[in-house]
Design a protein around this nucleic acid. Structure first.
Length: 938
RNA sequence: GCGGGGGUUGCCAAGCGGUCAAAGGCGCAGGGCUUAGGACCCUGUCUCGAAGGAGUUCGCGAGUUCGAUUCUCGUCCCCCGCACCA
């Protein structure tokens, strides 16, 4: 079977007939589904294709449900990666060129990628091809790219930003970033050689005082200020006395640059060798005590401020260093009295440790000195325990009795307000820029933020979520959590492709911020993106235009006049928006719940009235490849194009959708993919061969097939409604096929009406998953139009599932299985004859009377029947079994069913079947119970 | 660490108080389709079993219950996110 030819044939027909380019049809219910446009720095990845095709399958399903369905698609080009990659190509960087080579870009084409604009042309074009190739039911008349390269979209984003600003949703502020001092720009993950995922962490500078000089000690644990016994300075390091804001600080040289980057005003005064400070006494402003400065070699000048406070009761490093001094007082050059005053000060109680946890762990782990690497582990252990389970002691004043976790922020805020501490940012690990420079933390000011921390806005977002349909329902918690957790989002960048911030042209709108309400743009894209048809020029897309079309603000005639767009065209767009909006569902990978999808919710509530807020969101896991996580290092990353070449469109789609559902990571099963085409080919052949053929008389088994298929279609539809596509394929394909196989076994010549009905239903169920082959079948069996637009299978509510028929069939199956098992176990391969004895009538009656009751009541009711009393002992034995095994009557007329299926059973087991013969040589009949006839095999 | 999602028989995966040795798919084994078969159909696929049965299983450890894969608690492991970025 030539799948490729079939796929191309139908893709062409789809395009010619504009099957997926819906137009406004007033009165007809619509369904608008979409998918976050992919970023165009490469081909469409198979993992992303999984999420995209889920949306597309849902769209196709809704179309078959009768909805006027819109599934548009666009391409994201905003941000730095494309620009950065193009620059690297321009520089001839091998690594970047290899990436393109690996994608299959011919050598001669590579130089073109030195221009970022080329990326934005090439990849959207190629991705479009790939999506058409997979049969994606996309309305391509609405496609576009982002950034100023698309002036119409650019105007739309400018309108959006002005709208948000006018609404008070955009504020100015500052925030810490990872910064490259050489490139003079923030360095995101993709711009780093080292330090992926590292972000600035807040640390606290506790101010100790030596006269008027402040010694700021960097710490993650401000609560331990209550237990400081001394400070540590590295005697081998040079310190600097400097004017910092209005105070005089003492810090290491390396700290000076860091302070400057973090908005401290710094003026260096003089250099001081660390050694000179040893032995001096400083004031702990929090406790009021005077403590000495002691020497420690573990103090690194690059970390924190190079000034460290010592809490030997709770910090293993401090305890070890202090012990080192005691052990070798001479070397430290200190007098004994300095040391003798130092007493460990406990301030946190935790379970499993005594008063001095640091002492215990250092001694317990046999840590030799302050340079012992085991200290790292000890510190982590104590920190974790104390932070999560620790309670502050009475010597912590107003914080006493509180948990460390809870008291920490309160105490920081108090210290800072009392000028006893300052907030500072530090990188917990080294970050190296691609230019080889070591990165630092910089506080960027004049930065524009989307004010997601605004509680009123958060409340709106919660409200929107509460009214949304979510798949799977489990993500609701996550959405609500994210809304609460989200802080202000820096929505502008200094660098990269995008839309200039309309009121401050230095900035470009950041790439997640230009992607929040663009689904609205899809509704009018078929007009504004096609000047050749409608003659709309970008400059005509004024704020008044968008206000009118999207928000019904302003007078149509006035807007037509000022924009120069005809009133008719204007209103056509307005109608289009009002018909399609809000969107019904947006599907993506689960990673976008925490940012993009939630941003979309926020921004919709800010700009649109409630009736246009999103109706639904859905999320799915990340595609694994044959159980392996996809990653470049494993070399198992595939593009949609590659997979499609290997397996074909329908097989790829079916395999993807059978890969999994819910939030768990789905799996691409190559074995399944390999077997998919033959399976589909087989269905094609069966359908075409059997449709409209068969006998006319109706048998028991025909009703059985109708019954099980009806039930299964219903289950399939329910799964489809919830986007549970794996379940839908399980029920709607594999279960259906299993039933069909049994049906054919029972009745090699099918009933004409039933088999034709079944073939139609099965093909339609498969159609959203494997559209091409299903179109082909549909055509061959004389279906009207495209199966893509045919009505999804339904069932006759009046002739519902017939349980007794299904149970009867199960009964036959179980009898056959029992016979085969006996033959197997008793090694009766040569048996020729099987006698089947159904249970005595009284057992059916006893079952009827006893079922669902307790033993006493059951016996009473059964024995009330005089007939029963005759059988006495046997009756009580059977009733006992009914109760303990919770048996229930099946309602199957066993004699009749076996009579009907006698020949079939005989044929299946290869024996002559005799039903209820008078003779019973081995006295088997008495073992028979309802649902379980006795058997004698000879 | 925090928030969320998970750990089921060779693999993928359903089940979420009794009907469960646990659906389905894949893989594997045997048989059939009177040549072949990467097609298709049957059968089997935890262990034992010369009559349809019995036993041991659902990350690990406790508990609730007449009864737990399903509920509670503890514990270990895996995935996603923790931001300024696509």
């Amino acid at each position: 079977m030539d799948f490729k030819a079939i796929e191309e044939k139908w893709q062409q027909r789809y395009e010619e007939a504009k099957v997926f380019e819906p137009v406004v049809e007033p009165g007809r219910p619509k369904y608008f589904i979409n998918f976050p446009y992919p970023y165009m720095n490469g081909f469409f990845h198979i993992g992303r294709a999984f999420s995209g095709i889920r949306a597309e399958v849902m769209g196709r399903y809704k179309l078959m449900q009768g909805y006027n369905t819109l599934f548009p698609f666009a391409f994201h080009c905003t941000g730095t990666p494309i620009v950065a990659a193009a620059e690297r190509i321009a520089e001839g960087e091998k690594k970047q060129m290899d990436i393109l080579r690996k994608m299959g870009i011919p050598e001669s084409e590579i130089p073109k990628f030195a221009d970022p604009v080329y990326w934005t042309e090439f990849f959207p074009r190629e991705t479009t091809k790939d999506l058409k190739r997979i049969g994606a039911a996309v309305d391509w008349s609405r496609t576009f790219i982002t950034t100023s390269l698309n002036p119409c979209y650019d105007h739309f984003i400018q309108w959006q930003m002005r709208k948000l600003k006018a609404g008070g949703y955009i504020v100015m502020g500052e925030h810490p970033v990872v910064w490259c001092p050489h490139c003079k720009s923030p360095v995101g993950d993709h711009g780093r050689l080292e330090g992926e995922g590292v972000t600035p962490e807040e640390i606290y500078l506790i101010k100790f005082k030596l006269g008027e000089t402040v010694l700021p000690c960097g710490t993650y644990r401000p609560e331990t200020t209550f237990g400081v016994t001394n400070l540590w300075l590295n005697p081998e390091v040079t310190y600097v006395r400097a004017k910092v804001n209005d105070e005089e600080w003492l810090v290491t040289e390396a700290t000076i640059e860091k302070l400057k980057n973090q908005k401290f005003v710094v003026q260096e005064l003089e250099r001081v060798p660390g050694k000179a400070m040893i032995g001096k006494k400083v004031l702990n402003q929090v406790t009021g005590s005077m403590i000495p400065i002691l020497p420690a070699t573990f103090v690194e000048p690059e970390t924190g401020t190079g000034v460290v406070m010592s809490v030997p009761a709770h910090a293993p490093y401090d305890f070890a260093a202090l012990r080192d001094i005691e052990n070798n007082l001479q070397k430290s050059g200190l007098t004994p009295d300095v040391i003798s005053d130092i007493k460990l000060i406990p301030l946190i109680k935790i379970e499993g440790y005594g008063k001095f946890p640091a002492k215990e762990i250092v001694e317990g782990m046999n840590i030799r000195d302050q340079d012992d690497p085991k200290l790292e582990e000890a510190t982590k252990e104590i920190y974790k325990k104390e932070f999560h389970t620790g309670v502050l002691n009475e010597n912590t004043g107003k914080y006493a009795g509180k948990k460390v976790m809870e008291a920490k922020m309160e105490l920081v805020s108090d210290f800072v307000h009392e000028d006893k501490a300052a907030i500072f940012y530090e990188l917990p690990e080294t970050v190296q820029c691609r230019c080889l420079t070591k990165c630092v933390v910089k506080i960027v000011s004049d930065q524009w933020f989307l004010n997601y921390s605004n509680p009123i806005w958060k409340a709106q977002a919660h409200k929107a979520i509460a009214n949304m349909q979510l798949f799977p329902e489990k993500v609701r918690r996550q959405f609500d959590y994210v809304v609460d957790w989200l802080k202000d989002w820096a929505c502008t960048r200094e660098y990269g492709l995008g839309t200039e911030l309309p009121w401050d042209r230095r900035w470009v709108v950041e790439s997640l911020s230009d992607s929040t309400i663009y689904m609205a743009y899809y509704t009018i894209a078929r007009y504004v993106q096609h000047p050749e048809k409608y003659g709309i020029r970008p400059e005509q897309l004024t704020d008044a235009f968008f206000d009118y079309v999207f928000l019904s603000i302003g007078d149509g005639n006035e807007v037509a006049k000022t924009t120069g767009i005809s009133r008719d065209l204007l209103d056509a767009m307005k109608r289009e928006f009002e018909y399609w909006y809000p969107f019904d569902l947006r599907n993506s990978g689960k990673d976008l719940v925490q940012n993009h999808l939630t941003f979309a919710i926020f921004n919709h509530t800010a700009i649109f009235p409630e009736k246009h807020w999103p109706r639904g969101m859905s999320a799915n896991g990340f595609l694994q490849l044959d159980g392996q996580k996809m990653s470049t290092s494993k070399g198992n990353v595939y593009t949609l194009r590659q997979i499609c070449d290997m397996y074909g469109a329908d097989a790829t789609r079916l395999t993807l959708m059978y890969g999994g559902e819910g939030l768990e990571d789905p799996n691409w099963d190559s074995e399944f993919a390999r077997g998919a085409s033959p399976k589909l080919a087989q269905w094609y052949e069966f359908a075409v061969e059997n449709y409209g053929r068969g006998r006319d008389d109706e048998k028991f088994i025909d009703r059985w097939l109708e019954s099980v298929a009806t039930r299964t279609i219903r289950q399939t539809k329910e799964a489809m409604d919830r986007m549970e596509f794996r379940t839908a394929i399980q029920r709607g394909y594999f279960d259906m096929q299993r039933y069909l196989r049994w049906y054919i076994r029972r009745s090699p010549v099918p009933n004409k009406r039933v088999i034709s009905w079944f073939i139609e239903a099965q093909t339609k169920i498969l159609a959203p998953f494997c559209p091409h082959i299903c179109e082909e079948i549909w055509e061959k069996i004389g279906g009207q139009g495209f199966i893509a637009r045919a009505a999804y299978p339904s069932w006759d509510e009046a002739a519902p599932v017939d349980e007794s028929i299904e149970k009867s069939e199960d009964f036959i199956r179980s009898v056959i299985e029992d016979i085969l098992e006996i033959v197997e176990v008793a090694q009766l391969k040569d048996a020729k004859n099987v006698n089947i004895y159904t249970a005595d009538d009284w057992k059916y009656r006893a079952l009827q009377l006893a079922t669902g009751k307790n033993m006493g009541q059951a016996m009473k009711d059964v024995m009330a029947d005089p007939e029963m009393r005759k059988a006495g002992k046997e009756v009580s034995k059977y009733v006992g079994k009914v109760i303990s095994d919770r048996l229930v009557p099946s309602g199957v007329d066993e004699k009749a069913v076996l009579g009907e299926a006698q020949d079939f059973i005989g044929q299946e087991v290869g024996m002559r079947v005799v039903l209820n013969p008078a003779e019973d040589p081995e006295n088997k009949r008495r073992h028979a119970i309802p649902g379980r006839p006795a058997l004698l095999i000879k």
